[in-house]
Design a protein around this nucleic acid. Structure first.
Length: 910
RNA sequence: GGACGCUUAGCUCAGCUGGUUCAGAGCGCCUGCCUUACAAGCAGGAGGUCAGUGGUUCGAACCCACUAGCGUCCACCA
């Protein structure tokens, strides 16, 4: 066996094991009706993207779940892939073009799309490669892309079916328009930011009267598109004006004054300018009153030809300034006051959104929402944390139609075909379109120029990745999937819509038994949704490229190791709270990995040593359940087994409830504090003691067996270091820990009596260590301890485990002393009624010792007093459960006994 | 305007079903240590009015109400 380095070096092992796993197809899942499936579909990252800390958190959690379930014997399938990310990707390529001094229009649509594909092939794999560095055990054979052939077919199929059902329609509506991207956006793609602006009060002359109508607006430039003035019909002040005509300043257009309930008479002057082409509410008013819609903007939000010449071609904000100046000069501006209001911006480029009238495609959402609401309310789909249900309900109940057309080139082109006379239909192909439209092959057909919203392909992800619309075995077996791990920021974009789509399009598809799917249980896309935290920097700011406050995960992996990063991020991630992250925090995970490493090193070094001395370790033993090695079990063994099974149980409970951070704490506490701090130290007393070699071998073999169980438990969180050590522990003949059986909690090993006994031994050791520490006695100096037990049982325990006390508290001899014993000048403590004396003549600081004892006396006194107060309260004694009252009484008695002893020892201190 | 979350040690946070010596962990700090796995470590220690107020209860960090501060989402905003 070769030398094992003192410090764990992740870089030396990570690549090796990842390659081993991947090349042996250990991540691959296939249909196997003997096993239960456990499926996760990855939230497909943007193909343009690179790994962020958000991805690290997200994918670490998915990998923990998938590795855990895989080891538990599920057919665990994690489907990876990327999203074509229409606007983002087009942006990236356009930027690259701009650097060459070109733009997409020069290139033309076809060439441009070719260019995007090339770009995707070249740069698109980045994030997928980076996920491998993290250790993600995705089934790479199943990797999908939202624009690949199968998924494109699914998109077409869905569009055509929905169109035929009347769930998709086309119409001229006000949409959110991004003037930078020159495309429509869905409502959800608009960010709202509170902005300080102005409220401009403008007066409009009323025809035939010597009066003015004064309206207030935050966007004075839109007056150029005004086609009416509106007041509330109940507003007494203005009733006489309704039906009259106002004159639009600077333009001279005649505007009818109308009455409409929409107008809030308490806001501003109670009069509103109506701009049907540039405000959603005004648009609706325009429809009610049959108003003219005057569009005043070009696609990039410059003033178009329908405004007076002096404004034509101006940018909207420049125009605003000009308008205000002109109004002021001509006496139309009554006043300007500061006004805070929220302004919509494009979620990708933060350009101010312009409400813009245009032809778009929409999905009717209300018919889809009903059942999607039901499956969450009836718990078929569970959200973690649960509070997101409320947010989901609210959105579903107030759902609005989804604008799915985008005026860009990169994406799924809308499968709608138009004849020269303007009739149209949706179809899977041109041939089908001809058929549906009843035209012959000579009639030229034109396909819609627009593409679909990116989310129109990702909402199909849980079934399109499995072969839908074909009836595949994969689809039957792996859908519904099990857990979805994603950020709450895309609950509407993605989660809600996937629920709607699976319910709608999996209806009637065969289930695992080959029967048509009917029930909610069969139609949901996933059973659990875990909403991850938002990662922030150490100051609590959102991580962003522009702030430059996001560490590059690859740097973190290089500096600390993938396991360290995984463990730390999971440790820091409470359910539903934000995470404040900085790279240095990974020291926690690195130190833990190193601790595990060294625990393994300890076991291996001793194994080597015993083998040199001729001991034989039976291969495979360490793998088996530890009960096979029942020989020579002592307190330490029974205790660590009890702790181990506690840990297994708690770990599984934590992960079942998606308490990821809790699961890391179970691992950390068990491995570091139980296994390393106590058990290994106790094992040393036997390995280095005078036990016969065969006993030592058994003791060590059991320790290795328990460590083996710990490694398996650790593996989902820390795949690399656990595989490396697991392979070192013994010859595995090509087996990987990845596919080893996950530990099973066995209640019969959980032994409260043993734990209680051990707790006593630990507190005696702690008491001696405390005396040592407080008196600054170096470990090299061995001390004598005198113990006065309160009863025979304790006396027996101390006698039996004296060697542990000696080793762990560095004590040379332990004397059991009798009741009448008068100690020499000693430092003392009372544990559980047992008195402990450490004779320290010449080394003791009497004043400090007094203080120490006094502190303990005060503490116990306070406890006794608080219990006495409780017991003096007749209502407590009457109403509290008997056991609680009894316990309090017992506690009081035992504290009093200890107090007495402490006081006596304090007096005896010369 | 509506909804939600958070406030516990110097810092970052656990604390799940109200009752265990319930006030915890990691980091940082102080003291002593290179003790035959680990100084990325070991042992010991200091440090808290559980945001505030009121209520429910025999009993509250935990349940309820209100207040303050921080944060998030949704809607509307002429």
């Amino acid at each position: 066996m070769k030398e094992i380095p003192k410090a764990y070096s992740p870089a030396d092992v990570e690549e090796k094991w990842y390659h081993y796993w991947e090349s042996r197809k250990l991540f691959h899942a296939s249909v196997n009706f003997q096993k239960k499936p456990y499926t996760i579909v990855i939230p497909p990252p943007n193909v343009t993207g690179s790994l962020t800390m958000g991805h690290v958190l997200n994918n670490t959690i998915q990998d923990i779940l998938i590795r855990w379930k895989r080891m538990q014997g599920f057919e665990a399938c994690w489907i990876p892939g990327t999203d074509h990310a229409g606007i983002a990707t087009q942006n990236a390529v356009e930027k690259a073009l701009a650097r060459e001094g070109k733009n997409r229009h020069e290139l033309g649509r076809e060439k441009f799309i070719e260019r995007v594909w090339r770009w995707k092939e070249e740069y698109g794999g980045t994030i997928i490669k980076q996920l491998r560095k993290l250790g993600a055990s995705c089934d790479w054979d199943r990797e999908r892309f939202t624009m690949d052939e199968g998924l494109s077919d699914a998109v077409k199929e869905v569009f055509v079916r929905m169109y035929d059902k009347g769930l998709i329609y086309r119409g001229k509506y006000i949409v959110n328009w991004c003037p930078f991207h020159r495309t429509a956006l869905s409502d959800d793609e608009v960010d709202h930011a509170e902005t300080k602006g102005h409220l401009y009060h403008i007066r409009y002359k009323i025809e035939g009267l010597n009066e003015y109508a004064v309206v207030a607006t935050t966007r004075p430039e839109t007056m150029l598109g005004d086609t009416a003035i509106a007041v509330n019909p109940k507003d007494q002040r203005y009733q006489k004006l309704v039906g009259r005509t106002a004159i639009l300043p600077l333009v001279g257009r005649r505007l009818p004054i109308i009455a409409d309930d929409y107008v809030d008479s308490t806001f501003g002057t109670g009069m509103v300018k109506v701009t049907p082409a540039h405000d959603p509410n005004d648009f609706l008013m325009g429809q009610r009153h049959n108003l003219e819609k005057v569009n005043i903007f070009t696609e990039d939000a410059k003033m178009n030809e329908s405004v007076p010449k002096q404004y034509e071609g101006l940018d909207r904000f420049d125009c605003r300034k000009r308008i205000v100046q002109d109004l002021e000069r001509e006496g139309f501006l009554v006043k300007t006051e500061p006004h805070a209001h929220s302004v919509g911006t494009c979620y990708r480029c933060h350009t101010v959104i312009e409400p813009y009238l245009s032809d778009q495609w929409f999905v009717r959402m209300k018919p889809l929402a009903k059942s999607a609401l039901r499956v969450v309310q009836n718990g078929k789909i569970k959200f973690h944390p649960e509070r997101w249900v409320k947010v989901y309900d609210h959105w579903m109940n107030n759902i609005r139609d989804w604008c799915i057309s985008r005026q860009i080139w990169w994406g799924h082109r809308i499968p709608v075909y138009y004849t020269p006379d303007g009739t149209y239909t949706a179809a899977r192909s041109e041939e089908e379109a001809r058929q549906k439209l009843g035209v012959d092959a000579k009639t030229p057909l034109r396909q819609d120029e627009d593409v679909l919203d990116t989310w129109f392909s990702s909402w199909l992800w849980p079934f399109s990745t499995l072969g839908w619309p074909e009836d595949t075995e994969d689809l039957r077996y792996f859908n519904p999937t099990d857990s979805l791990v994603t950020g709450p920021d895309i609950i509407f974009f993605w989660v809600a819509r996937m629920i709607m789509a699976n319910l709608e399009f999996m209806k009637g598809m065969p289930n695992a038994q080959g029967k048509p799917r009917q029930t909610d249980d069969e139609l949901i896309p996933f059973r659990d949704v875990y909403f991850t935290s938002i990662i922030r920097d150490a100051q609590g700011r959102k991580m962003s490229k522009s702030l430059g406050n996001s560490p590059d995960p690859l740097d973190v992996i290089r500096d600390y190791g993938a396991d360290a990063l995984r463990f730390t991020i999971a440790y820091l991630s409470p359910l539903g709270q934000d995470v404040l992250f900085s790279a240095e925090k990974c020291e926690l995970g690195r130190n833990f990995a190193n601790k595990i490493w060294n625990a393994g090193r300890f076991l291996l070094m001793n194994k080597q040593e015993l083998m040199v001395q001729g001991s034989r370790f039976e291969s495979g033993n360490a793998n088996l359940h530890p009960q096979i090695s029942n020989l020579h079990l002592d307190l330490a063994d029974r205790w660590i087994l009890s702790r181990l099974h506690h840990a297994i149980r708690d770990f599984n409970t934590a992960l079942n409830e998606f308490h990821i951070n809790e699961s890391t704490k179970v691992l950390y506490d068990f491995v570091w504090h139980d296994f390393c701090d106590w058990y290994v130290e106790m094992v040393k007393t036997r390995l280095y003691g005078d036990e016969p070699a065969d006993v030592k071998t058994i003791v060590l073999q059991r320790a290795i067996g328990i460590f083996d169980q710990a490694l398996r438990m650790l593996h989902p969180h820390m795949p690399f270091v656990t595989e490396e050590l697991w392979q070192h522990l013994e010859e595995r003949n090509g087996q990987s820990i990845m596919r080893a059986e996950f530990p099973i909690a066995d209640e019969k090993w959980i032994d409260p009596k043993t734990e209680e006994e051990m707790a006593f031994v630990q507190s005696v050791i702690n008491a001696v260590r405390n005396i040592r520490g407080e008196n600054n006695i170096p470990p090299s100096k061995e001390i004598v301890v005198q113990v006065r037990p309160a009863n025979d049982q304790r006396k027996g325990v101390i006698g039996a485990y004296a060697r542990y006390l000696q080793k762990l508290a560095r004590v040379s001899t332990i004397e059991i002393v009798a009741a009448g014993f008068k100690p020499k000048l000693s430092s003392s403590a009372v544990v559980d009624g047992i008195e402990i004396f450490v004779p320290l003549e010449g080394m003791i600081d009497v004043a400090a010792e007094r203080q120490r004892l006094n502190k303990e006396i005060v503490r116990l006194q306070q406890l006794v007093e608080s219990i006495e107060r409780k017991l003096a309260n007749p209502q407590f004694v009457e109403r509290a459960p008997k056991e609680v009252v009894e316990k309090e009484k017992e506690k009081k008695e035992s504290f009093k006994v200890s107090l007495e002893k402490l006081r006596r020892n304090l007096e005896q201190l010369a």
